[in-house]
């Protein structure tokens, strides 16, 4: 579709500026819904308490749970509650709705590939969620239970990178799930499957280390799911040695690249066989 000039143009300065402007727009779009942010953060905190007491009961029974001590488990839960809407595992149906209504035509009429435009806006949205949705549960967790303080100097920057990669991976998964609407007209089925599957397989409900080793390893290598939630959390609580800690983030990066490629291919294929809805 794109000639060599268009590919070179991909990373030009104006493109970077357009990406930045779209990310800023994503940030502002989501800043307008303040009451929803308060309600959402409150819900995350309430569920944080429920989850933390369940997992603490497990730790109390055995002293430590699959390699996490008490403080690590508490941190795992509260940071997971904070990351939930940053990574945004559920509730993104914008693209599928636009495909269904035919509004996606206007996305295709822009001089920017839709995947790039949507990714930019999603990163802006995630930035906004860091302030309004990540901080409240983490602050509550820190005040009520006390959180794990990383011992390695590079853990916090590595965690930030890991969260960024988790957001990109999650965006790509959501994009692919939504893009099924190009073929199915209605993507609600795949979206429900994604909602149920991603929470369990990403380690949102319980740390994946509870699973038998072969299953956990298979999940990590063969699916992007652990990279959405479990990896950034394990990086932050220093569950593994430095080599594995960095290796898991590298694996996330590989998945992010593969998924972006998959999104690009899917979008192009959709455009070729596209029947745009509506007159």
């Amino acid at each position: 579709m794109h000639g060599p000039t268009a590919t070179a143009d991909w990373i030009s300065w104006p493109r970077v500026r357009a990406f930045g402007a779209l990310a800023a727009a994503g940030y502002r779009r989501h800043s307008t819904y303040r009451q929803a942010a308060v309600a959402g953060a409150t819900t995350n905190v309430v569920f944080g308490f429920i989850k933390v007491y369940v997992l603490l009961a497990v730790v109390a029974a055995g002293g430590a749970a699959v390699g996490y001590d008490r403080r690590q488990i508490v941190t795992f839960v509260w940071v997971a509650q904070g990351l939930l809407t940053v990574v945004l595992m559920w509730s993104w149906t914008e693209l599928s709705e636009r495909i269904r209504s035919g509004d996606v035509v206007t996305d295709l009429l822009r001089p920017l590939p839709p995947v790039v435009a949507y990714l930019a806006e999603d990163l802006g949205r995630a930035g906004q969620a860091v302030l309004t949705r990540f901080l409240p549960p983490v602050v509550v967790g820190a005040l009520v239970f006390g959180l794990y303080v990383p011992g390695r100097w590079f853990t916090v920057p590595l965690f930030a990178l890991s969260v960024l990669l988790a957001t990109v991976c999650s965006f790509c998964c959501r994009y692919l799930v939504n893009a099924t609407a190009y073929w199915l007209a209605d993507a609600r089925g795949p979206i429900v499957l994604w909602g149920v599957g991603s929470g369990v397989l990403a380690g949102l409900y319980f740390p994946l280390r509870f699973l038998p080793d072969p299953v956990a390893v298979a999940l990590w290598v063969a699916t992007p799911f652990p990279g959405l939630m479990q990896t950034p959390l394990d990086v932050l609580v220093e569950r593994d040695g430095p080599a594995l800690q960095c290796g898991l983030v590298a694996l996330q990066a590989v998945w992010a690249a593969l998924l972006l490629l998959a999104c690009d291919r899917t979008q192009r294929r959709a455009e070729r066989r596209l029947v745009l809805q509506g007159g």
Binding site: R28, R29, T32, D103, T106, G278
Partner: peptide, 13 residues
Amino acid sequence: VVFGQRSQLWWDL
């Protein structure tokens, strides 16, 4: 391009 029944503007902005 202007589509009378579509919008190219950002709804929330």
